[in-house]
């Protein structure tokens, strides 16, 4: 595998993360507990769509087959998607959505902070823009996790269940493979070991402040780096890609 191929896959994966998480957050539109939260979650979804556009456009350029961001979003099947499993899971209750946003936004915050120093200048520029956005997502998720955890008996119970349920999907966030090693050697990719340590420390701090209990590291789910997904991604794509599949090249 060449550096170019590895970088294509790297950008694709980050773009897919943003696209699929955006899709899930959009599902809260008109369903959030209060109007202000409805706006907040869909606002984050729009931030993520912007990030997906940048990353998928760049991935298309790296691939060099003339595929646009739309081609990559609407014309790949689930085995060709590489988003982390955590982000494709159904929203569950509000606590589950917050737990997912907490785990992913803290990860993204440290990840894109590192990626700002990538030797690849396009990736570094996208990372610099993204850090500002995810810093806010992280603040929002942290406040809610603490508010719910340190809230009523019911909210504490639900928040604890959410972090317990999703914990097994967090191991995947720090996986490395032959491709990321190629990029790491060239100072293009971020150092996952360091990010894992920072992530763990911050999550422990937040969970402690929220009067919740850290889940145990037991079995961790894996598979998305090779396109193996949960049963849920196919349903997302069948809805998201319906128009393009039914009426290819449709314009209006």
């Amino acid at each position: 595998m060449t550096e170019q191929d590895a970088l294509y896959k790297y950008c694709l994966r980050l773009g897919d993360d943003a696209l699929i998480h955006s899709y899930r957050l959009s599902e809260w539109c008109s369903n959030a507990p209060i109007l202000e939260e409805d706006l907040a979650l869909t606002n984050f979804a729009l931030d993520m769509i912007g990030r997906a556009q940048l990353l998928l456009t760049y991935a298309g350029q790296l691939e060099g087959k003339g595929r646009t961001d739309d081609d990559l979003a609407y014309r790949r099947s689930e085995r060709e998607y590489f988003n982390h499993l955590l982000l494709e899971l159904p929203n569950g209750d509000f606590a589950h959505t917050i737990a997912r946003l907490l785990f992913s936004s803290v990860w993204e915050y440290y990840f894109f902070n590192e990626l700002q120093h990538s030797r690849d200048t396009t990736l570094a520029a996208i990372a610099a823009k993204t850090v500002k956005e995810v810093k806010y997502h992280m603040a929002h998720a942290t406040d809610w996790a603490i508010r719910l955890g340190d809230g009523t008996e019911e909210s504490n119970h639900r928040m604890q269940k959410a972090i317990d349920d999703l914990w097994m999907y967090t191991g995947e966030l720090f996986e490395t493979d032959e491709q990321t090693a190629i990029l790491r050697d060239k100072n293009i990719a971020a150092d996952m070991a360091m990010i894992k340590a920072k992530w763990r420390q911050e999550i422990e701090r937040i969970i402690g402040e929220a009067t919740l209990t850290m889940p145990k590291d037991e079995y961790m789910q894996t598979g998305s780096s090779t396109g193996i997904h949960t049963e849920y991604l196919g349903h997302i794509l069948s809805e998201m890609q319906y128009l393009q599949r039914a009426y290819p090249e449709a314009t209006w």
Partner: peptide, 8 residues
């Protein structure tokens, strides 16, 4: 309140 104002 500040976050909701920002988002709204």
């Amino acid at each position: 309140a500040l976050q909701n104002a920002r988002d709204t």
